[in-house]
């Protein structure tokens, strides 16, 4: 099972990102689960959402306390207490940032990729919403799921121009990170437990 935690701020499409990732897994005939951590939600407040992807049905409902990967939609959140807590040793962090990956890796103590998702989203969507670009970049880095699965999940949720723009955005985003470098960081797939 692969577990992700997505950190963002209210209004950045955190929950939608988690739902899209799990939906993409389900598109690939795998099992996916996604849910937000609820709080008193308001724009700009730190929020988080959880994703699990597995080859067997997922029955646990606990929050993801020890994620394999973190997706952080706003670099400033790296300084918020709790954001890095529980990340598995060697686990990867994908951050929406204009900083360098080297600098952020040093800062977090984990393999960290800086990726300017806001700028890319602004270019494709005309809006600074980083979530789908980050999902595509994550899938490209980890190869947990093919990009096509994310495209499928987007097609179920959006239509027309919004969908078109998002599809071109994720294709572009996937090209902009070194593909497959996080592949070995994935835990071995679990075996169905009789």
């Amino acid at each position: 099972m692969i577990e992700l935690r997505i950190h963002g701020r209210g209004g950045q499409g955190n929950v939608v990102a988690a739902y899209l990732m799990a939906a993409a897994a389900i598109k690939e005939q795998r099992y996916g689960q996604a849910f937000p951590a609820f709080g008193a939600e308001r724009r700009g407040a730190p929020v988080q959402a959880f994703v699990r992807i597995a080859d067997v049905p997922i029955r646990r409902r606990s929050q993801v306390a020890e994620p394999d990967f973190l997706i952080v939609q706003d670099q400033a959140l790296l300084h918020v207490p709790g954001v890095l807590v529980g990340l598995r040793r060697g686990g990867g962090i994908l951050v929406n940032s204009i900083d360098s990956s080297e600098h952020l890796s040093e800062q977090t103590g984990h393999p960290t990729i800086a990726f300017n998702a806001t700028a890319l989203a602004q270019r494709h969507l005309g809006r600074p919403v980083p979530n789908t670009a980050l999902l595509a970049a994550f899938l490209s880095l980890s190869e947990v799921l093919p990009i096509g699965a994310l495209a499928g999940a987007l097609s179920d949720r959006f239509k027309g121009k919004v969908l078109e723009k998002n599809l071109s955005l994720i294709e572009d985003a996937a090209q902009q990170v070194p593909g497959g470098i996080w592949k070995t960081m994935r835990r071995a797939p679990e075996v169905a437990n009789g």
Binding site: Y19, A22, I26, Y31, G32, Q33, A34, P36
Partner: peptide, 12 residues
């Protein structure tokens, strides 16, 4: 149905 735990969880 458990609120949030089920109502707000996406699954197959």
């Amino acid at each position: 149905v458990d609120g949030f735990t089920l109502t707000h969880t996406l699954e197959p």
